[in-house]
């Protein structure tokens, strides 16, 4: 392939939207072209970051009261209790969400920038971040170690240029992970840093998977 890959092709590749023959050609090109490989990596990083954005955002104050006033309930059922007595229920719901939902959600659900957060008020949320993050990191490490082992076994199937490109990208990602980890040690409550750390691990997994797949097909 003499031409560089266009964005539509790279975008479709990320979504698994190419037929097998096209995909093989595209992956061969990626293995030999640093420019396209790096653009593909950047697009993949963007998608990873988008997927790691917080699933929840703080709601505007008084929203429920406004919704409640619009509900037709077949009778005028005024609130039995004043709003402040229900605050406990609100916090409990927020806390349940933090505990029960996914690790990443738990990492990011507290402390948003555009208003007071329901869950940010719960000290337990912040306290729970570090062990959760540690557990998540452990999961990632297990997966990447496995992929690294697979890649090491099949590395000989790749061209030296591809191996060099993969190793270069890996070093970049590992540096980013290490920096995020150091920064988190200083600021364990930072959701941005937690997200960056997770995104870094994610990127590493994607890169290793991609390289392993290339090696398997070669």
């Amino acid at each position: 392939m003499t031409h560089h890959l266009d964005d539509q092709t790279l975008s479709d590749l990320l979504d698994d939207g190419l037929d097998a023959a096209t995909r093989t050609g595209v992956e061969e090109h990626l293995a030999s072209c640093d420019a396209c490989f790096s653009r593909h990596q950047r697009m993949g990083m963007l998608v990873t970051h988008a997927g790691a954005l917080p699933r929840t955002m703080p709601t505007p104050p008084g929203e429920w009261q406004q919704i409640r006033a619009r509900l037709h309930t077949g009778g005028s059922r005024a609130f039995a209790t004043p709003w402040w007595t229900r605050r406990g229920a609100l916090l409990a719901a927020g806390l349940a969400l933090v505990i029960a939902s996914s690790a990443v959600t738990a990492l990011v659900v507290g402390g948003r920038r555009d208003g007071p957060s329901q869950t940010a008020a719960i000290p337990a949320t912040t306290a729970a971040l570090t062990p959760r993050l540690a557990a998540l990191e452990y999961e990632y490490t297990t997966v990447t170690r496995d992929l690294e082992r697979q890649l090491a076994e099949r590395k000989h199937a790749l061209t030296p240029e591809t191996v060099a490109a993969v190793e270069r990208s890996l070093r970049t990602i590992e540096t980013a992970i290490a920096e995020a980890r150091v920064a988190l040690a200083r600021d364990p409550g930072s959701e941005t840093l937690a997200r960056l750390l997770v995104a870094g691990h994610d990127q590493k997994v994607e890169l290793l998977r991609h390289a392993t797949r290339l090696a398997t097909q070669s």
């Binding site: 699933r55 229920a89 719901a93 349940a96």
Partner: peptide, 23 residues
């Protein structure tokens, strides 16, 4: 079954995600 208190609890659980989608 018409239980508004139950609906309010659903709101408390899911409002953050609904808000994020809308915003």
């Amino acid at each position: 079954a018409g239980d508004v208190a139950a609906f309010e609890r659903l709101y408390r659980t899911h409002a953050g995600h609904v808000r994020a989608i809308c915003l």
